[in-house]
């Protein structure tokens, strides 16, 4: 199978973010929180401080590496929750139909009508700021597209011979869903989850920027941008590098998602004659 350009570039960018997060303790030159030194505040990039230092004199390069850990955690955990909710609701709604389908459909439409960031803001307001509430807020608010995709894929599989055969062979409904349907809808669902990681990283940055997400002094790309806001004139590097990190990570996830979609798209596959 030919790998698309999107898939390769997206994979490389995503791998970079993952490596940055995993290897942060070894790659970082300084501790992201403790090595604050007001004597070295707002230094431009040089040989010691590759990306310069911020207002407290902390190394921006090291903070970005550790920030990758937070972005990844938020992206992965929130997407696991989203995918779980979306698939469970979408697949069961399509499989059973009837009133359950009506309820899930209504719920999905409501979720789609409310901007998810506003919804997440409301959840954060109730739960209070912090990493855990951030994960819950983003995990509960972005499942609607996954749900739609799981539902429509299940609907088209439901009438296929092998799903009907499983029913006539005596399989229970849950067994049919887990063995016959789920493996065959995982492709599009994975694509959605990858695309969702990008938007989760962005939402984390936005919520942290608003002061609702990761609390100082822990380094999140969003909160680094907040800190950088006041001194963007004197020390632009404090804003540019976290901004670049967000941009590249989101771009990476999106390209990877697009690439996966192209790869899994049956129309792109050559069919045997």
């Amino acid at each position: 199978m030919k790998l698309g350009f999107n898939l390769i570039l997206g994979g490389v960018l995503t791998a970079l973010v993952i490596l940055a997060g995993l290897l942060a303790p070894w790659l970082a030159h300084f501790d992201p929180v403790l090595d604050a030194d007001l004597m070295n505040a707002e230094l431009p990039p040089d040989a010691t401080y590759w990306f310069g230092t911020d207002a407290q004199g902390r190394d921006v390069y090291s903070r970005i590496l550790y920030g990758a850990q937070i972005s990844l955690t938020v992206g992965i955990v929130s997407q696991i929750i989203n995918t779980f909710i979306g698939v469970a609701l979408g697949m069961s709604a399509a499989y059973w139909g009837g009133w359950w389908d009506d309820i899930v459909n209504g719920l999905t439409n409501v979720m789609l009508a409310i901007p998810s960031l506003i919804f997440a803001l409301a959840v954060m307001a109730v739960l209070g700021p912090g990493l855990v509430s951030l994960l819950i807020a983003l995990g509960l608010t972005n499942w609607s597209w996954t749900c739609r995709i799981a539902r429509s894929s299940t609907l088209s599989l439901k009438s296929l011979g092998y799903v009907q055969a499983a029913q006539t062979l005596g399989y229970s409904d849950t067994r049919i869903m887990f063995t016959q349907i789920l493996p065959n809808i995982m492709g599009p669902v994975l694509v959605m989850a990858t695309l969702g990681m990008g938007s989760a990283v962005l939402s984390e940055a936005a919520l942290s920027f608003l002061g609702l997400g990761i609390q100082p002094p822990f380094p999140s790309w969003g909160s680094m941008l907040t800190d950088a806001r006041q001194m963007i004139q004197i020390a632009p590097w404090t804003a540019i590098f976290p901004g670049m990190a967000i941009f590249l990570a989101v771009l990476g996830f999106n390209l990877l998602g697009d690439g996966l979609r192209d790869m899994l798209d049956p129309h792109m596959r050559t069919r045997k004659l």
């Binding site: 296929l160 011979g161 092998y162 009907q164 055969a165 006539t168 062979l169 005596g170 493996p183 065959n184």
Partner: peptide, 25 residues
């Protein structure tokens, strides 16, 4: 009867051989 008992009594052969087998098994 339950699905399990029914399964022993009657089975079905489907029209489209390309859609009647789970591609992942």
């Amino acid at each position: 009867p339950s699905r399990m008992e029914r399964a022993m009594a009657a089975q079905m052969v489907f029209q489209d051989p390309y859609a009647s087998l789970n591609p992942r098994q």
